[in-house]
């Protein structure tokens, strides 16, 4: 009895993923012992560096600014990519015309467009948002299209035999059936947005987590680079968890898991 209980607790601890974190810190600490703080700062040094950044408010501002950009680019991307994906998935002709673009550009990473976007959209916010937008739309479109195309044909026929026309069937059968795939696209889009924030903020930015990482190299503040990296990871981790939570709560009827 007692042993079983202990086993259960152990399993819970394992499942929480905490082991990975402990392992990471241990290896990091061990590795850092062999190098200078400028080359590879240890956890403690990084934490102190981070504390300094938090204290003067810089990190808070950076996070806020980056988040705002991510959310802007991501939302704009969703607003564009979901409807377009639905249309391409639903109408064969649209598919023939637009899918080649999709299958071409989705292999060109956002980072390849940095200079061009700077040129086209200027040094202000729009170039950064545009870059994130670009990173978001492809995973969202590809997944949305896949979702539409995997709709159970029998459901469509059932809807039509009950008297629904094409448009009604589209909104009451095709779209709801595609929700799980669309949601996967939305999640991938978010991770794409966060991943590309560093690239976006390398372009003439003066604030943001990406800016922090990029400029810290100029001062040899390796601990700040580490701080930035962890911040990004944590932001992504939390954002995805939140999104999953929202999905489970509001979209469970569409079999989102």
């Amino acid at each position: 009895m007692e042993r079983k209980k202990q086993g259960m607790i152990l399993l819970k601890v394992l499942k929480s993923g905490i082991v990975a974190w402990i392992l990471l810190v241990l290896v990091w600490r061990f590795g850092a012992a062999f190098y200078t703080d400028d080359f590879l700062p240890g956890p403690w040094v990084t934490l102190k560096g981070a504390a300094a950044l938090v204290a003067d408010g810089a990190l808070g501002t950076d996070i806020l600014v980056s988040l705002l950009r991510v959310i802007k680019g991501w939302l704009l991307g969703l607003i564009f990519a979901i409807p377009v994906g639905l249309l391409i998935g639903n109408f064969k002709t649209a598919g023939y015309i637009f899918e080649p673009f999709l299958n071409f550009f989705r292999f060109v990473p956002a980072i390849g467009f940095i200079t061009l976007f700077l040129l086209w959209f200027g040094v202000g916010e729009s170039s950064k948002v545009a870059l994130i937008f670009y990173a978001v739309i492809f995973p969202v479109m590809v997944n949305t299209i896949a979702g539409v195309r995997s709709v159970d044909e029998a459901l469509i026929e059932a809807s039509e035999s009950l008297g629904a026309n094409k448009a009604r069937t589209f909104f009451t059968v095709v779209v709801p059936s595609a929700v799980p795939n669309i949601f996967t696209g939305v999640r991938l889009g978010l991770s794409g947005a966060i991943t590309c924030i560093v690239a976006a903020e390398m372009l003439a930015a003066s604030e943001g987590v990406g800016y922090l990482i990029y400029t810290s190299r100029l001062y040899y503040r390796t601990d700040w680079i580490f701080t930035g990296i962890f911040t990004l990871g944590i932001i992504g981790f939390i954002a995805d968890k939140l999104l999953q939570l929202v999905g489970r709560k509001w979209l469970c009827r569409f079999a989102v898991r």
Binding site: A154, L155, E160, S161, G163, S177, V179, R253
Partner: peptide
């Protein structure tokens, strides 16, 4: 068309809307 034939169709897989 299917829509206007006024026919009830019960599919082998039931085809109930899961959502």
């Amino acid at each position: 068309s299917v829509q206007d034939r006024e026919i009830g169709f019960v599919f082998q897989s039931y085809a109930l809307f899961p959502y």
